[in-house]
Design a protein around this nucleic acid. Sequence first.
DNA 1: TTGACATACCTAGAAATACTATGTATAATA
DNA 2: TATTATACATAGTATTTCTAGGTATGTCAA
Lengths: 110, 110
Amino acid sequence: MKKQAIEHTRLLALSLLAGEDMYGYQMIVELARRSNHTFDMKEGTLYPVLHGLEQEGFVEAYRKQAPTGRERKYYHLTRKGQGALREEEAAWRRYSGAVNDVLRGGAEAV
Amino acid sequence: MKKQAIEHTRLLALSLLAGEDMYGYQMIVELARRSNHTFDMKEGTLYPVLHGLEQEGFVEAYRKQAPTGRERKYYHLTRKGQGALREEEAAWRRYSGAVNDVLRGGAEAV
DNA sequence: TTGACATACCTAGAAATACTATGTATAATA
DNA sequence: TATTATACATAGTATTTCTAGGTATGTCAA
């Protein structure tokens, strides 16, 4: 019943797009694969986030025909989005490092 | 204006109490110190969480006179709380490990 | 002594974030 | 041809944390 704790959705989304352009559904599948199924991001979570990233100019969307004949909406990480990714990565390292410090009983010597 | 992302409040609170009994205000100060001021937990966040942990039997509260003469409300981690802490720690390692896997481009070989 | 500040606890309401549930539509497959 | 997987989307709900406010005591300087 407990909510699954996926909080850094933006970081994860930006990170997925760093390697290659992807469409939403693909990102969900890829995220599950790369995280060994620790993350099971819902469509109701990802799509609004992608729309937000697009509005901020971090990603650009374009439609492309899939080999299946079906049209997909691909997202591309812009230069601005690359900067945002670097910032979010730094924030994550700071955050996770701090949690680990606390778990170890605190960073004694500074 | 952005909300500070402290999500694992329970984990942090339980972890602080693993070493010694503490009172709320002290926990906030200690958390800031141990995290090198990465975490600045608000009272409006901590106190409701402590009350919840108490209701679940993870911590026990008792009042004690401080050297200043003032009464403080100390929290003690119960055996049940120690178990909860171990579980939360494991969840954190799983979660942070998965984020790092995704940032690295995915855990290729499983 | 009094005014400011740090300490110490608490709660109500707002904001942010992610989930559930649902709707639509197409392609593949049994 | 019916079901499943693919693919996008949004409305409403739930959870978590913050903001803002309240109450009260101890310390210290002016």
